[in-house]
């Protein structure tokens, strides 16, 4: 086998990294099935292109990048497709995180794609601003701006959700 990674090594890596990556992709996509799908597809591509995959030296980051790109392009394609075949948007079938998590997931989904990706990569995947910049092909200053706007938007959205929640608890009314 060319590529310098044995089947056992790959399987071990897959078993260890898959759950972590689906969690991260869930934060990015807000959808379980989608997260699982794109991560799995990224692993298939990784084995298919072992050489490229290993040359990068950061296998998990490689998978994550591929999975995120897949998620973005699938989402765009699905949206276009749905616009073609029907006028009204599809019902959301996101299986349930608890209410407090739902607030964060919901807030994340409201963010523009670029901001969401920057926030997830920086604050969840622990990448530096410079790493996020090279990952997304944007200048460092742009990434900083996206992060700052993303955090501001999240704060605002979560505040709204919070107030709503309190009122429903009956504390306000």
């Amino acid at each position: 086998m060319a590529g310098g990674m044995t089947e056992e090594e790959f399987d071990t890596f897959y078993a260890a990294a898959f759950p972590r990556l689906t969690g991260q992709l869930y934060a990015f996509t807000g959808d379980h099935g989608e997260a699982q799908d794109v991560v799995q597809e990224a692993f298939v591509r990784a084995w298919d292109r072992r050489r490229e995959f290993l040359a990068e030296g950061a296998p998990e980051a490689w998978i994550r990048t591929v999975a995120m790109r897949l998620a973005v392009s699938r989402w765009r394609r699905a949206r276009r497709w749905l616009e073609l075949v029907r006028r009204n948007p599809p019902p959301e079938h996101t299986p349930g995180p608890g209410p407090e998590r739902a607030a964060l997931v919901g807030a994340l989904r409201e963010l523009p794609e670029a901001q969401r990706m920057a926030v997830v990569l920086h604050h969840l995947c622990d990448m530096s601003v410079e790493q996020v910049a090279s990952e997304t092909g944007a200048p460092v200053g742009t990434v900083k701006a996206r992060l700052s706007r993303g955090r501001a938007a999240l704060a605002r959205l979560l505040d709204e959700a919070d107030e709503l929640g309190e009122r429903e608890d009956g504390r306000v009314r």
Binding site: E7, D11, Y14, P19, G23, L104, V120, L124
Partner: peptide, 21 residues
């Protein structure tokens, strides 16, 4: 919060590595 969210939504592998390969 993000880390907790991601951790809560980790998914076990649906198919073995051999199937992926």
């Amino acid at each position: 919060a993000l880390h907790e969210l991601a951790q809560d939504h980790e998914t076990p592998v649906p198919v073995p590595g051999a199937e992926i390969r």
